[in-house]
Design a protein around this nucleic acid. Structure first.
Length: 288
DNA sequence: CTGCAGGGGTAAA
DNA sequence: TTTACCCCTGCA
């Protein structure tokens, strides 16, 4: 592996902050020069945007152009998606204006599953630290510019890790969930390679829910943020509940808002684009 | 300094 | 439907 570079001009819908801060990923960090460096699928990549040019460079396995196009979902027409969603109502229109540069990344499925199990009842800084320690401890080291980076560990690399070792990394009560799910995946208790060919998102969701530590919210995040790329899901966490209540349901007692109502309204309004609509609403209300 | 609530949920009661 | 859960942070 050696360093490669790539650049693109005038890419629509591509803002680093929007992409990396909208809650979909945990391994991208901002550098002093406002660029971002991240580790994904065994690659280390730095991304910088200047005016209308985006510069990519890093240590990647394969052709950097292919890797960037795939990971950043560059072949999808976000302009068209935004146009369609903007017509729904003024709320989503404002959300889109706020987060117009969001793209949903094609992240590794296993990494996304384990990362979102760790995200349960947890906050982002702590999630990031845990994932970093997990990668440092068991992932493959990649050296770039005299700095050490660590790929997210493969299932094989996690095969012999004990519950206690996870506990020592600070996973807390999530230790057993990670252990169990790693072994459920290793033992092919769910046939996750088939999920890519399954058109029925609900069927895949059903199987995801059988994994330890995967409930409705985590399952929807995996479907939306991994390279399974399903936009017909609507992950509901406290923020989304807050936004949806504020904009559409208007229940004075937010804790009384029914998940089923949120799901119904989301599908009614945004249809099969509800997943990406969720991201615009979430990012808008959480940052603002 | 100590105490405590709460955090981008899940699983068990 | 309600509650415990492991750890860290912010704040009284």
């Amino acid at each position: 592996m050696q360093e490669q570079e790539y650049q693109i001009e005038n890419q629509e819908s591509f803002e680093l902050k929007h992409i990396f801060d909208c809650g979909q990923c945990f391994r991208w960090n901002e550098e002093d020069d406002k660029s971002y460096t991240g580790v994904f699928k065994g690659n280390v990549l730095n991304v910088k945007k200047d005016n209308n040019t985006i510069y990519f460079k890093g240590i990647v396995n394969g052709n950097i152009k292919d890797i960037v196009e795939d990971y950043f979902d560059l072949n999808r027409d976000y302009t068209k998606i935004k146009k369609t969603l903007s017509k729904v109502d003024n709320n989503i229109k404002k959300g889109i204006e706020y987060g117009e540069g969001i793209r949903i990344l094609n992240q590794d499925l296993v990494e996304t599953i384990l990362s979102f199990i760790i995200s349960a009842n947890n906050n982002i800084p702590r999630i990031k630290k845990i994932i970093e320690r997990l990668s440092e401890s068991y992932g493959t080291k990649i050296v770039w510019n005299k700095k050490n980076y660590y790929a997210f560990p493969s299932l094989k690399q996690l095969e012999n890790v004990s519950v206690e070792e996870y506990r020592n990394l600070g996973l807390g009560f999530r230790d057993k969930r990670i252990y169990d799910t790693v072994h459920m995946l290793l033992n092919n208790q769910v046939d996750y390679k088939k999920w890519y060919d399954e058109n029925n998102t609900l069927k895949v969701r059903e199987e995801l829910l059988s994994l330890a530590g995967v409930g409705p919210k985590v399952a929807d995040c995996i479907l939306l943020f991994s390279d399974l790329k399903r936009f017909d899901v609507f992950p509901i966490d406290v923020w989304v509940r807050r936004v949806m209540n504020e904009l559409y349901i208007k229940n004075p007692d937010e804790t009384k808002v029914n998940k089923k109502d949120i799901e119904r309204i989301a599908y009614q309004k945004f249809g099969n684009l509800e997943g990406i609509a969720q991201q615009y609403l979430f990012y808008w209300k959480r940052e603002a």
